[in-house]
Nucleic acid binder design. Sequence first.
RNA 1: GCAGCCUUAGCUCAGUUGGUUAGAGCGCUAGAUUGUGGAUCUAGAGGUCCUCCGUUCAAUCCGGAGAGGCUGUACCA
Length: 502
Amino acid sequence: MSEQPSRRQAKKQKKFKPKARTPRGLRDMAGDELRLQNHMIATIAQVYESYGFGELDTSAFEYADALGKFLPDDDRPNEGVFSLEDDDGQWMSLRYDLTAPLARYVAEHYDRLPKPLRRFQFGPVWRNEKPGPGRYRQFMQIDADTVGAANQAADAEICMMAADCMEALGLERGDYVVRINNRKIMDGLLIAIGLDPEAEEYETTRLTILRAMDKFDRLGLDAVKALLGEGRKDESGDFTKGAHLTPAQIDKVAQMVSIEANDRSHALDAMAELVGGTEIGQQGLAELRDMAELFTTLGYGEDRLAIDPSIVRGLGYYTGPVYEIELTFEARDETGELARFGSVGGGGRYDDLVKRFKGIEIPATGISIGVSRLAAALTLLGKAGAAEPADLIVVTVMDKETRPELMALVRDLRQQGLRAELYMGDSAMKAQLRYADARGARFVVIEGEDERAAGEVTIKDLQLGKEKSAEINDNAEWRASEHAQQQVPKGDLASKLIELTS
RNA sequence: GCAGCCUUAGCUCAGUUGGUUAGAGCGCUAGAUUGUGGAUCUAGAGGUCCUCCGUUCAAUCCGGAGAGGCUGUACCA
């Protein structure tokens, strides 16, 4: 280093203040938003519990090999996951969903668990990918799974429970729909159009086709056709390569995604024609028919549970029925933009997941609901009715020597069932009022010299005062006004507050 | 991941043809108006001008690289 540090160096040495900010794609949650999230979790958990599911909590970290990766064509292995190396050299990763930890848990404790196992779990999951508006790298999921049941009653039950959850949260019938498909039908379709499952490039082609079908909802039929053929160029000029199917093959796949989903039996018939006589396709159809029959028997209509051949639901590990919960209403957000919410959760049957650990096939089916997006939707719908906490009472401190007595006063208020706190700062009266206002307090209790001499306290109603102040422009008038307050004998404070609160 | 645009105070933004001490509004903190949230007045705090490297006597400004943000797209277990 030179004798005379440059200005840049001098500047650099001056301060080393860290910048206070949340990491990219992560966020803090407080107040109404947090209360809503807790309320939603409690509501959904109650539905899950009423179906007999029992709660499980697992660690945020899992060994990386236990989480595994499920996309065979993934050209970026191990991306999307937060990982770190433990001091024993083993790699651990933050869970990216709650299903992989469940598979590990089942495999680890298989012998002592009741089968079928019905467990629900909620908690944050982490994904190391590009965040976007309303899309974070940590978010809350709440899952329910049945492990060890191979029949379609287990799948059907989960779909019906998903519908029940939406209504428990206050959504009206028609504001949501659970769309259901079956992986086996799609595999049957691919065989029916002449693809060879033994061919080397089959997996890649299959994924490309499934991805294309998945986009039907968002991009429409023409885009799907382009993606099935040569590929598609989007508005930014970016090119997505296609599946290179023949026009005849494209036509069949297009027919499949275009099937109207309004009527379950018609949808099933139309699907049956397209999968032809393929064994796997027939199997998938039979499974869907079983489910549809249960829906009808139990009175779950087409408006709540629909068969939809364009549902693909991820690509990794699903082996049978797949389903997605979709919000069907539109609403305007703060900026007046039309917001569509689309999928808020989904799931399906994954019969191979535990096999990775145990070597034996253990059938499983389950659902995952994303709490954050649902919360945003409920807020815009005005259905975010999480219970408000009780009215807050802030007791101000006029003379610091009286603090012990005032603490006893707020303790007495609390013992009477009121929500009360003593101002814990050291600032003057005005700041204490501002504090109460910022906290959203309903009442302020003041005991100054005058009151103490009279054995009284002043109760100030901040809500009332705010309404009054709207009509006052002049400062003198403001000062002369009563400030929406009253004086009561100190002994009557609790009962008076209870009276005012109710 | 790819493409385009962007980055100066907590927020919204000025500004410097490269030159001593970088500004406004709002917000925040405190004081005044008898001991009361609004209004008014006064004062104050708050800045690595995104980061690093280079060019220069001198860089917030010019050049290069990188990071972060926004939008679209891809991926989404």
